[in-house]
């Protein structure tokens, strides 16, 4: 996938959730369909950060199981795993890279470091990351 395609309302829902959870990191899953142009998000799951921390996040496995089950029932594919960096730039941290176990997923990071949020999308594999495009469709 070379691009993350997300609807404006989903984009805002993600950012609002991240702002609500600030100062802690917020996290969640974006599901949808893998298309030729990129990964198209049609559903966003706002998840609990079990770490409740401004510096790290970890999703609750049971909640993850439930989301994957729901995705399967709705015929959705995993498109992206997102989380916020409330106080730092939107770049994958060493821990983000070390925990990027879904090689096929886009890792989306929302930085709330500055007044205006910054959302960036990355592919992470073999301890390296590569930024890909982000398209917000209204």
């Amino acid at each position: 996938m070379n691009k993350l395609i997300i609807k404006g309302e989903d984009y805002r829902a993600v950012v609002d959730y991240c702002l609500k959870e600030k100062p802690n990191e917020a996290c969640g899953i974006m599901a949808g369909k893998r298309e030729e142009e990129g990964g198209r998000v049609t559903r966003v799951y706002l998840m609990k950060n079990t770490k409740a921390s401004p510096k790290e996040y970890l999703m609750e496995p049971e909640e993850q199981f439930a989301v994957f089950k729901d995705m399967r029932q709705k015929g959705l594919e995993l498109i992206s795993i997102f989380h916020s960096h409330p106080h730092s730039p939107a770049r994958p941290s060493a821990k983000d890279i070390a925990m990027a176990h879904y090689k096929e997923a886009i890792y989306t990071i929302i930085s709330l470091e500055k007044a205006k949020e910054v959302m960036r999308a990355f592919l992470i594999s073999d301890d390296k990351y590569r930024e890909i495009g982000l398209k917000i469709e209204e």
Binding site: E25, C27, K55, P61, P86, R91, K95
Partner: peptide, 9 residues
């Protein structure tokens, strides 16, 4: 499932 987690930059 794989753990989904990470940390601040």
């Amino acid at each position: 499932i794989f753990f989904m987690g990470g940390g601040a930059f």
